[in-house]
Design a protein around this nucleic acid. Structure first.
Lengths: 355, 355
DNA sequence: CCTTGTATG
DNA sequence: CATAAAAGG
């Protein structure tokens, strides 16, 4: 299993892992102590590019953590006022009138640790989903702060080889039958992008799809390698059980899905290659749940660049999705964009199912 | 002249330079525009270590700036309350009773741009020195923000080759006879550490002495190369006119000059090598003006590490000095440590002369 | 604009 | 603990 995952539980359960609180002693200052802990001397240019090295040994057989330094998170501001007005209770029903009994939320948090400092977990408590899917933790599994734990949920984290890059996680109330890290293809699984939770009636796939990059340096990798293999993976799951795919798909499908389609035809996330690739995936028997329910709703976005006050002008993109196996249409109650919830350059999205 | 300097004047004067205000247009977002400004593609590991490259062409013959992007400084907090109580007027006199008529201040600001955001210039206005010496600008000359200008002063900045590293500057009311960048030795002058202002009665040398580093990797360079050559430089000036040397000398001379001498005998700034090297410089005919006036004053520090709340415990170091040619003793009114002034990990120091 | 690791102090 | 630049988004 190439990527490194870790499990940490709050409710008493078999395999429970206690997260060590770090002791209070701060690092001694070099200016205030004689014997600084000797670090190996590195020549100025020994970094070897960017984000390659891992600092810490992680879990061994029984999932116990061996990592040493752990960031101490202090909540510096709270995003909770941004959703004080929101009614989080489900109202919509399935076509045949059944009420939602399973709620899944998904959020690209743009850095788990910064998000924790903004009291991001307050959203989880308010939304109270059965499963919360997180993308872009930018945090090595061994460095996930203890403050990331949420009462009533078990969390499972995944990170890749590059420090501070990518990374996904899930919180769940009900233990899945199985949790799988990655898609079983080594060349894709070293970036910490996919967690699959198998439930009785469906697979839940949490994904952070690779960004094609500013000058599209990774467009070919994204559309010709990743998308192709990930599509196969989804198909293989779908042959066994229905699939709920959620996360940051890093594509705005149609012109309606971003504010400025004309100006972004060669921008990552709206290239014709990425759009057609997403179309190809849907053709394998999946639906874009939001667009299925709201085919003509404009200005429904889930991402706004931090620049140029894009969010205040709602100059955004719909990059986050719940994609469902077509046969889950009959279980679909609602697909919601929580556009007012602050704390990241993405907002959360929510799926209500009657399952 | 190896280091790059620049002059910018506020009062009308020959050679006056107007600093271009940048236009309002922010950079277009890659996510919001089609044609992002093409930057040359760089392979992931082409950095060549750290801080080598210069981004911008700087001034030419007449000191005109050609640099393009300039940081827009917004004052985010003000340090002025930290010195609301201070009486900045001079009281002390020379041994023969003459009053001060020339005030020099010196401050390691730990990043000019961050210091500007804290309204560091408010200190200059309050102290109102004839010359203000600044160390550790960490700012390329071409990137000095327009907000660094102060009414009534002309400023002169110097930076080295490495971006965001070292750098010094001076503000003056009265134009010096001559301003010299560096000490005329190429191997030292690429780090932007010395500005010499020649006045009628003395040379003023503003210095940021190289730090020996955490594991003392630069101790030999510091004591056997820099200190040796810099000492010669001071001596050569002293043969012509008295010298006022000020700045961050990165050494605490004696045990009285830091809180924890026992624990720091192999810490940069208190090694025996650095201390003896400073002694050797003083033996060439200079005095440590503060210690000359206050030989037994304890707990007089100018630097406190940001870590461990060192400043609140006054666990500091005296690293900043006014060193004078011995024959300036008769002109010395006072040498003051402004220990309450916040805004950096160093505090300002002030020299009062009757000249 | 914002977060991240790294270098430096 | 704080500043900075670079890379990624």
């Amino acid at each position: 299993m190439p990527p490194k995952g870790s499990k940490s539980k709050k409710p008493a359960d078999e395999g429970t892992v206690k997260v060590d609180k770090k002791k209070e002693d701060p690092q001694p200052s070099a200016a205030e102590t004689a014997e600084a802990p000797k670090e190996e001397k590195k020549p100025a240019s020994s970094r070897g590019g960017w984000g390659r090295k891992k600092k810490l040994a992680t879990d061994s057989a029984n999932g116990e953590e061996t990592g040493e330094p752990k960031a101490k998170i202090k909540v510096k501001s709270s995003i909770s006022e941004s959703f004080a007005d929101i009614d989080f209770s489900a109202r919509a029903k399935t076509p045949d009138g059944r009420e939602s009994n399973f709620k899944i939320a998904s959020w690209n948090v743009n850095g788990l640790r910064a998000w924790l400092e903004k009291d991001g977990v307050s959203y989880i408590k308010a939304e109270n989903p059965d499963v919360m899917c997180i993308q872009e933790t930018k945090c090595n599994v061994s460095l996930i702060p203890a403050e990331a734990e949420v009462d009533g949920y078990t969390s499972h984290w995944l990170s890749g080889d590059a420090e501070g890059y990518s990374g996904v996680g899930i919180y769940y109330k009900t233990k899945p039958i199985k949790i799988t890290d990655g898609i079983g293809i080594e060349k894709h699984d070293n970036e910490g992008r996919v967690i699959t939770a198998e439930y009785e009636k469906f697979y839940l796939v949490n994904v952070y799809v690779p960004n094609s990059g500013r000058d599209l340096p990774r467009l070919d990798y994204r559309t010709k390698e990743w998308d192709v293999d990930f599509r196969k993976y989804l198909k293989s799951l779908d042959e066994k059980k229905p699939v709920v795919l959620c996360g940051d798909l890093n594509v705005a499908h149609h012109e309606i899905d971003l504010r400025n389609p004309k100006g972004n035809k060669r921008t990552a996330g709206f290239t014709i290659e990425e759009r057609e690739s997403f179309t190809a995936t849907l053709r394998e028997g999946f639906i874009d749940s939001f667009r299925y329910l709201y085919p003509h709703t404009e200005n429904a976005f889930t991402f706004w660049t931090f620049m140029m006050n894009a969010r205040s002008k709602n100059a955004g993109w719909r990059l986050d999705y719940f994609v469902l196996s077509e046969r889950l249409k009959e279980n679909l109650c609602d697909s919601i964009i929580r556009s007012k919830v602050m704390g990241s350059d993405h907002c959360p999205i929510v799926l209500e199912l009657a399952i």
